[in-house]
């Protein structure tokens, strides 16, 4: 796609399962586009240089820093944000585990952390604590000291494992 700097383009994507579109400049960051053009303010911006991980979303199923991607790059692609994790108004197992294990305080970094955990648990069904900590090392949380987050992820992995064994 060739773009001109001073023009705005209609970007169409699938956001949390629904087709959405809005106008974006070629330089508009994906995080700004999601938040301010599409109203998906659950995704947060913490550093705008790819270190803190707060803005992590899923693009075509992969956890991605939305501050390091342009809105025009998601044309025709599938984007999932924290708003997708509750189904029919009910929080999913990962969200419930975060509450149970006090894995959040201010909640600002949580949006990105949940998306990374969501992707990770889809790939790794029986993670060790070291693997969970390694996955989470792409995120900065200033409130929790991380303990609750690690516990929540391990608890979800165990629970899903048990469910699989019980329902062959």
């Amino acid at each position: 796609m060739y773009v001109r700097l001073d023009e705005r383009y209609r970007v169409t994507l699938t956001l949390n399962g629904r087709e959405r579109s809005a106008y974006a400049e070629p330089r508009t960051q994906l995080c700004d586009f999601l938040r301010h053009s599409l109203g998906a303010t659950g995704t947060h911006v913490g550093c705008e240089h790819g270190v803190c991980g707060a803005c992590t979303v899923m693009v075509d199923g992969r956890a991605t820093r939305s501050c390091l991607m342009l809105a025009v790059q998601v044309e025709g692609r599938r984007v999932e944000t924290i708003e997708s994790l509750a189904k029919e108004g009910e929080m999913g197992d990962l969200q419930r585990a975060f509450r149970e294990h006090h894995a959040l305080q201010c909640g600002f970094c949580t949006a990105g952390i949940l998306m990374s955990c969501h992707e990770f648990l889809g790939r790794v069904t029986d993670p060790s604590e070291a693997e969970v900590r390694d996955m989470l090392s792409g995120h900065l949380c200033r409130c929790t000291g991380y303990t609750g987050i690690v516990q929540a992820v391990l608890a979800v992995a165990r629970a899903r494992q048990n469910n699989r064994q019980e329902a062959p």
Binding site: R35, Q95, R99, E100, G107, A111, L114
Partner: peptide
């Protein structure tokens, strides 16, 4: 006591200043 704050934050429904 699990926190009353958590559900909104975990669902992306927090209302921070830039939201």
């Amino acid at each position: 006591q699990p926190r009353v704050e958590d559900e909104a934050l975990l669902r992306g429904l927090g209302r921070y200043a830039d939201d």
